[in-house]
């Protein structure tokens, strides 16, 4: 059964179609890749799902909900968390506080109970902090939990961002280029973590990624976009040999080896 169903999605920026008539479905429990050359519309698709952009037409359904009826801040409550291509972290907050922001909707306390320091309000915060620490631990960056994110390296911040998304306890995780800026060992570690999240926590993953090796080994299904249109869909092997994909990436009939 499809957990996320995008149908006939179109987004126009002025005269340019960022997405035109794109449809795909993410089955529950899948690890799915969304690939394509730069400017193909991958991030735009993410931004539509998380309601940062309003599509011009089409529909997006998540687990029976029409996402277009929800406001951006309500999406995470439905069980969709994401990371960003160009890191959206609070630079002047510690890593741990950044991660705790992911638990924003799960902490239940009123402004007055917090301000007056009532024990119940604190308990809720403490629990969130514990889970945030665990998430940082899982991503292997618990050593920087008390550091401001402003001064940390890019690869580390990617992990902090992923930890923040996990704290929200999502059912669907949207990862926008999670491996960018990571070295080979870190990419392998990341692949293991993503697979474990799916296998053990049952989190469905939709990822945009340019690292083909990672995409091909991790994803069971891949959707390929080019110039805002879907050009192919299928298993890694199907996609790899699809002429439309090769053309999208390499231009027409040029015998260049696909980087692995």
């Amino acid at each position: 059964m499809a957990l996320l169903e995008v149908s006939q999605l179109s987004v126009r920026f002025g005269g340019l179609f960022a997405l035109s008539d794109v449809s795909f479905a993410v089955p529950a429990g899948a690890i799915m890749g969304l690939i394509g050359p730069n400017g193909a519309g991958k991030t735009t698709a993410f931004n539509c799902v998380t309601r940062i952009y309003a599509p011009d037409s089409g529909s997006i359904r998540f687990d029976g909900h029409d996402l277009l009826r929800y406001r951006p801040h309500e999406i995470i409550g439905l069980g969709i968390a994401r990371t960003f291509q160009n890191l959206e972290l609070c630079k002047r907050l510690k890593s741990i506080d950044n991660v705790m922001l992911g638990a924003h909707t799960q902490i239940k306390n009123s402004l007055f109970s917090v301000g007056l320091g009532l024990p119940r309000a604190h308990a809720s915060e403490r629990e969130a902090r514990k889970r945030a620490e665990e998430a940082l631990e899982l991503m292997g960056v618990s050593d920087i939990s008390e550091e401001l994110t402003g001064g940390l390296p890019y690869g580390t911040l990617k992990m902090v961002e992923l930890a923040r998304a996990l704290v929200a306890r999502p059912r669907l995780l949207l990862l926008d280029e999670p491996a960018a800026g990571l070295n080979t060992a870190e990419r392998e570690g990341l692949s293991r973590v993503i697979r474990r999240l799916r296998d053990q926590s049952g989190i469905t993953v939709l990822m945009v990624e340019h690292d083909m090796q990672m995409v091909m080994s991790l994803c069971e299904q891949i959707v390929v976009l080019d110039f805002g249109k879907k050009v192919a869909e299928g298993s890694p092997d199907q996609v790899k040999n699809d002429p439309a994909v090769i053309e999208a990436y390499l231009g027409e009939a040029e015998p260049v080896a696909v980087e692995t």
């Binding site: 050359p37 730069n38 292997g140 960056v141 050593d143 920087i144 001064g151 940390l152 390296p153 890019y154 690869g155 580390t156 992990m159 280029e177 960018a180 800026g181 990571l182 070295n183 870190e186 990624e209 340019h210 690292d211 083909m212 990436y249 390499l250 231009g251 696909v258 980087e259």
Partner: peptide
Amino acid sequence: PASAVRKEVSRHGIAR
């Protein structure tokens, strides 16, 4: 800063 290597861009993806 942890082990992570600072690399601004390392998109080895296949460029157009």
